[in-house]
Amino acid sequence: MIRTKELVKVFRTDEVETTALNKVNLEVNEGEFVAVMGPSGCGKSTLLNIVGLLDNPTDGELWFNSTEVSRFSERQRTNMRKANIGFVFQSFNLIDELNVYENVELPLLYLNMPSSERKKKVEAVMDKMKIGHRAKHFPQQLSGGQQQRVAICRAVVTNPKLILADEPTGNLDSANGEEVMNLLTYLNGEGTTIVMVTHSPSDAEKANRIIQLFDGHIVTENVKKLL
């Protein structure tokens, strides 16, 4: 599903040049649950942003299914993203002015889906994620765990083939974190491919492959489950 070849990302300022990713070769197959681990600043989020078409690499190739997308224009990346990828962030990134229902509905509005169809999909996903009773609430009226559940609803409402999760339990206590990890595991069980960046070895153990990133390089990967 995803393949990178010698992927490089360099951030430049007037004085400093930082190589965040250095010739990264990565392959993620459909249906996999892959965890990317490594210390702060090792390039994990940069890799996720590039794989998620939020950013372009400086050099190298990025293949999504059978399409080479590394030189896509902003518009092409947006279209590819909307149709295929859902995002879950550490800080939830919900829109405070919209209620739960409206937050979950947002990606469907961008797809110009008719209202009745949107309603069906939003209600179905909120029921599935057991957040339907909070539909009229605003993000700040919810606990962190509930907000992340809403964010996951928003990520999956378009039935994306791929979910990219950046430290999804980073702002949660262990009980809520466990619940979020169970949701991601459940979605993976249903066939969604998941790539998750995490600092937590416990969370990484939910994945079936763990990649260790260090100073912009993949230094090793464990193919099987740790537990």
Binding site: M37, P39, P201, F214, V219, T220, N222, L226
Partner: peptide, 15 residues
């Protein structure tokens, strides 16, 4: 890491 005892699995690399 590559040459390390295969009876052990890597969990985390510290900064």
């Amino acid at each position: 890491i590559k040459n390390y005892d295969k009876g052990w699995e890597l969990l985390q690399i510290f900064t």
